[in-house]
Amino acid sequence: MLNIKTERQKGKISFSLSGQFDMGTADILEDAVENEDLTGVQSIAFVLSKLEFIDSTGIGELIKYYRKFAGQGITMELINENPEIEEVLELIGVREIMAEN
Rank of each mutant, 00 (worst) to 15 (best):
F69D: 03
N35H: 06
G73I: 12
K64G: 03
I97E: 11
N101M: 13
L48A: 07
E90Y: 10
F15R: 04
T39V: 08
V33W: 05
E81M: 12
I54M: 09
L2K: 01
A99S: 14
K12Q: 14
V94C: 13
M23S: 15
R67G: 11
D27E: 12
I74G: 01
V88A: 08
L91W: 00
R67A: 07
E100N: 12
D55T: 06
G58I: 01
K68R: 15
G71N: 08
A32Q: 05
T75H: 07
G58P: 03
V47S: 11
Q9G: 09
V94R: 03
S16V: 13
F21P: 05
S43H: 15
N101S: 13
L48T: 05
N35S: 15
N35P: 00
L89E: 00
I4V: 15
I28A: 07
M23D: 04
V88T: 08
E96C: 06
V47D: 10
E96K: 14
I4S: 02
L89Y: 00
D22W: 08
S49H: 03
A32W: 06
T6G: 02
E86W: 04
R67P: 06
L78I: 15
T75P: 00
G71L: 13
I97H: 00
R67I: 12
L78A: 11
L38C: 06
S18R: 09
L91E: 05
F53W: 05
K5D: 15
G24L: 08
E30D: 13
E87W: 03
L51N: 02
T39C: 14
E96P: 01
V33P: 00
D22K: 09
P83V: 12
F21H: 00
E100V: 11
I85A: 00
G24C: 04
G58W: 03
I54P: 00
E52F: 09
Q72P: 03
E36W: 01
V33G: 02
A45D: 10
T25M: 01
Q72N: 08
P83I: 15
G11K: 14
I63T: 05
D55Y: 06
I85M: 09
S18G: 12
E61C: 15
G73R: 05
G73Y: 10
G60E: 03
Y65G: 07
N35G: 05
E84I: 15
E34V: 10
T25H: 07
T75V: 15
I4N: 04
M23L: 11
P83G: 07
L62F: 02
L62Y: 00
M23Y: 11
L91N: 09
K10Q: 13
K12N: 14
L62V: 11
L17W: 00
E81W: 07
Q9E: 13
K64Q: 14
D55S: 03
I28N: 03
L51A: 03
N80F: 01
V94M: 13
Q20T: 14
N3I: 01
